[in-house]
Structures are given as C-alpha cells and as structure tokens.
Computed example of a mutant assay.
Amino acid sequence: MDSETVVISDTKVIVVSGARSNIGKTCLARALRKLLPGAVRIKIGHHPRKPGYDDGCFYPMGTSFSTIAFEHGDAHFLIIESNRILEEIRPECAIYLPADDPKPSAEMAKKKADIIRGEDLSISDMSILAERLGCNEAVIEKIAELSGAHKEQG
C-alpha cells in the first residue's frame, strides 16, 4: 500500500443524543452495545467518569471524532453518547431522547436525529437505516423499540 492510499473504515456510528442529563442515554447505549456485535460504547462528557462505568470508554468534551475513530478502528459499531459530536460528523444513525427543559445543544441534535423517542419511524426510513448500518430491518426495528420510537403502521 503506497502512502496515497486511503483506508476507509467500515465502522458504523450510532449517536445517542438527548435533551439533557438523566433521560436514559447511557441505558440505551448499553442496550445497543449488547444488541450489536462488535460494538463499543463511548461517552463524551464534561464530568469525570462515574463509578461503575465499566462497559464503555469515556472521553472529555472536545475530543475529536478522528481520535475516537483511530483508537477504536477495529470496532464494527461505535455507539457515542453526545450531542456535540453531531456538529463534527454525520453518523449512520442519530437517536434523540427528548425531555422538558432541554439544554442548548438539544435543538441541533433533534434536527439531525433519524430516530426520536416517542415519534413514528416510517418503513422507508427503517430501510434506509438498515442499509446505512449494514443490518437487517429486524435489527433496526429493535433499535427503534429500544429507543422508544414507534414503527409507523401502514
């Protein structure tokens, strides 16, 4: 391989974002990690790692996606808990968990979301997500269910 060859990772990225703290982002990210083989859970945040945080990797706010991707290049899926990372990347799937009294970054995260807790997810959108993530539609249905979205009835 010469120095001009570009290697594109086949790692798929799912971002779990939300209106504020304590709305279930970590719980959802853990469930997705268990669902998806080869997944690594990443949290990007302001605060130091919480006790008992044993099944994920913590990065401080401001860590670039390129750093995270490099350090986890062998992961099949990166499940990233963060709103701000959506300013830097367009993941294969963005999930948004709404709540009252949203923090400033929440509006942007909601606008970029593919799946929103409490809202319908169309069959066509499920098909698009399945293609982007390289999964079958049954896996996307499970992701939607875990996220609290509703499969649109047709």
Rank of each mutant, 00 (worst) to 15 (best):
residue 152 E to T: 07
residue 59 Y to A: 03
residue 87 E to F: 01
residue 18 G to Q: 13
residue 87 E to K: 12
residue 141 E to C: 09
residue 94 A to Y: 07
residue 119 E to S: 02
residue 141 E to S: 11
residue 91 P to H: 07
residue 29 A to K: 11
residue 54 D to L: 12
residue 28 L to N: 06
residue 39 A to V: 06
residue 58 F to P: 00
residue 39 A to P: 06
residue 39 A to C: 09
residue 13 V to Q: 01
residue 138 A to R: 15
residue 20 R to V: 05
residue 93 C to L: 15
residue 141 E to Y: 06
residue 121 L to W: 11
residue 79 I to L: 10
residue 131 E to H: 13
residue 115 I to H: 05
residue 92 E to L: 03
residue 102 P to S: 03
residue 84 R to Q: 12
residue 1 M to T: 11
residue 74 D to T: 14
residue 36 L to N: 08
residue 47 H to S: 00
residue 149 A to M: 11
residue 74 D to K: 15
residue 51 P to D: 12
residue 123 I to F: 15
residue 136 N to K: 12
residue 146 L to E: 01
residue 126 M to H: 05
residue 11 T to Q: 03
residue 107 E to C: 01
residue 105 S to T: 14
residue 20 R to P: 04
residue 130 A to R: 09
residue 59 Y to L: 04
residue 52 G to P: 14
residue 74 D to F: 01
residue 133 L to Q: 05
residue 47 H to I: 02
residue 139 V to A: 09
residue 102 P to G: 00
residue 12 K to T: 00
residue 86 L to P: 03
residue 7 V to M: 08
residue 111 K to D: 13
residue 40 V to G: 00
residue 126 M to C: 04
residue 121 L to E: 04
residue 79 I to Y: 05
residue 124 S to G: 08
residue 16 V to R: 09
residue 137 E to V: 15
residue 120 D to W: 03
residue 151 K to H: 04
residue 136 N to M: 06
residue 151 K to Y: 09
residue 52 G to H: 08
residue 138 A to V: 15
residue 140 I to S: 12
residue 61 M to S: 06
residue 12 K to N: 07
residue 63 T to M: 02
residue 18 G to R: 00
residue 79 I to D: 11
residue 145 E to Q: 13
residue 58 F to S: 04
residue 124 S to N: 08
residue 36 L to Y: 03
residue 85 I to G: 01
residue 45 G to W: 00
residue 40 V to L: 02
residue 122 S to K: 10
residue 129 L to G: 05
residue 86 L to E: 15
residue 19 A to T: 00
residue 103 K to P: 02
residue 7 V to N: 03
residue 82 S to W: 11
residue 17 S to H: 01
residue 38 G to Y: 10
residue 153 Q to A: 13
residue 64 S to E: 13
residue 23 I to R: 07
residue 111 K to L: 07
residue 27 C to R: 11
residue 128 I to C: 04
residue 24 G to I: 12
residue 130 A to G: 10
residue 12 K to Q: 11
residue 100 D to G: 12
residue 8 I to L: 15
residue 95 I to D: 14
residue 116 I to W: 10
residue 72 H to W: 00
residue 139 V to Y: 02
residue 38 G to C: 13
residue 61 M to W: 06
residue 33 R to C: 12
residue 130 A to Y: 04
residue 62 G to F: 03
residue 100 D to R: 10
residue 105 S to G: 10
residue 13 V to N: 00
residue 109 A to L: 10
residue 30 R to T: 15
residue 10 D to F: 06
residue 41 R to W: 09
residue 39 A to F: 05
residue 114 D to C: 06
residue 115 I to F: 01
residue 118 G to S: 12
residue 134 G to V: 05
residue 99 A to C: 02
residue 116 I to F: 00
residue 83 N to V: 04
residue 103 K to E: 14
residue 100 D to Q: 06
residue 70 F to A: 14
residue 137 E to Q: 14
residue 80 I to S: 06
residue 19 A to R: 10
residue 97 L to D: 13
residue 17 S to N: 01
residue 98 P to Q: 06
residue 49 R to Y: 05
residue 119 E to N: 07
residue 24 G to V: 07
residue 127 S to W: 04
residue 10 D to M: 15
residue 36 L to P: 05
residue 17 S to E: 04
residue 153 Q to F: 14
residue 80 I to E: 11
residue 23 I to A: 03
residue 10 D to G: 07
residue 19 A to H: 02
residue 131 E to I: 10
residue 126 M to A: 14
residue 83 N to I: 05
residue 9 S to F: 11
residue 116 I to N: 03
residue 13 V to I: 14
residue 105 S to C: 13
residue 60 P to K: 13
residue 7 V to R: 10
residue 83 N to R: 04
